[in-house]
């Protein structure tokens, strides 16, 4: 009878503790993560490394023989005026779209947190671009911007038909159209993200400032922004990558880089050289440079928008 009361408290404690300990320190269970890891590395890291390798090959088309070219492709890329035009177009695109998008989205996000009349409906509307695929968005943009599309029709209706033009086929407006689509696409959803983050800012922080009579403008930039700077930074980084890399889709579907090369940006150049002009070495050398631009830009944004308190 005596041992029974003493054993139960120790026995469960021992069985409860022992497996936990052995499990938590590099046990075979960690092996369950291996298939996912292998899958991920095979389809992401593998192709990424291959990009560096291919950039050193002379490879004029998939079925053509390939040979080692060393730095030849990089020299060709850097000597190519088209590459520099693509750099310029990408720089304009990022330089205009990113600041406008983030500032506008932050303001709309702040506006949402004030719960003005109709904010529920507004939130649903702002989600729209996040649901629609790139090809459907491009088809919609085409139907709006084509010579006999919605925009020209509207201008005609209000008596400004003289302003109408083939927006996507005009050297002066084609790149602006691609940028407008980026903004159309990005502001709404980013604003909802900011609103979600701003919603978790404790009310006391605002209240403290309100007693000093701060208006919305000051509340927004002096309080809300510094408090959420880190989140804004990460979002900016992701939007930067998105605009830099994924706008190839819009260019491909809407302008094919034209008219002339007015809308050829870096990501479209990488696509076009590989799949239209079949110069895989050139394409991947440009791809490596683009990857470098993405990396540097990301670090710069991280530095610029780091939480500093």
């Amino acid at each position: 009878m005596h041992p029974t009361p003493t054993t139960p408290p120790t026995a469960p404690a021992a069985t409860g503790r022992r497996p936990r300990r052995t499990r938590r320190e590099g046990s075979p269970v960690t092996l369950l993560a291996v298939p996912a890891l292998v899958w991920y590395l095979l389809f992401t890291l593998g192709p990424l490394l291959a990009m560096f390798y291919i950039s050193g090959l002379s490879w004029p088309g998939m079925l053509a023989p390939r040979s080692w070219a060393g730095w030849e492709n990089y020299r060709a890329v850097l000597d190519d005026p088209l590459f520099w035009q693509a750099v310029r177009n990408s720089a304009i695109q990022i330089g205009v779209v990113l600041p406008v998008m983030i500032v506008a989205a932050f303001m709309v996000g702040y506006y949402l947190t004030l719960k003005p009349r109709g904010h529920r409906l507004l939130r649903v509307v702002l989600f729209t671009p996040a649901l629609i695929s790139a090809s459907a968005k491009a088809m919609m943009a085409y139907s709006v911007l084509a010579p006999n599309g919605m925009l020209n029709g509207l201008l005609d209706t209000v008596g400004l038909g003289g302003l109408g033009r083939a927006w996507l086929a005009d050297t002066d407006t084609a790149l602006a159209c691609i940028m407008a689509i980026d903004l159309w696409n990005g502001i709404g959803f980013t604003a909802v993200l900011f609103a979600a983050r701003l919603g978790s800012v404790p009310e006391e922080i605002y209240e403290a400032a309100e007693l000093d009579g701060a208006g919305h403008w000051r509340r927004m930039w002096r309080i809300a922004f510094p408090v959420t700077k880190d989140y804004v930074g990460v979002t900016t980084m992701l939007q930067f990558l998105w605009i830099l890399f994924s706008s190839a889709q819009n260019v491909l579907l809407l302008t094919q880089g034209g008219p002339g090369n007015a809308t050829t940006n870096l990501s479209f150049l990488v696509y076009n050289k590989a799949f239209v002009q079949s110069d895989l070495g050139y394409s991947q050398a440009a791809g490596v440079l683009l990857f470098g631009v993405g990396l540097v830009g990301m670090l710069a944004i991280r530095r610029l928008l780091r939480q500093n308190y």
Partner: peptide, 9 residues
């Protein structure tokens, strides 16, 4: 890691 980077490979 932007997925686009790995398109061609």
């Amino acid at each position: 890691v932007p997925t686009f980077a790995a398109l061609v490979p």
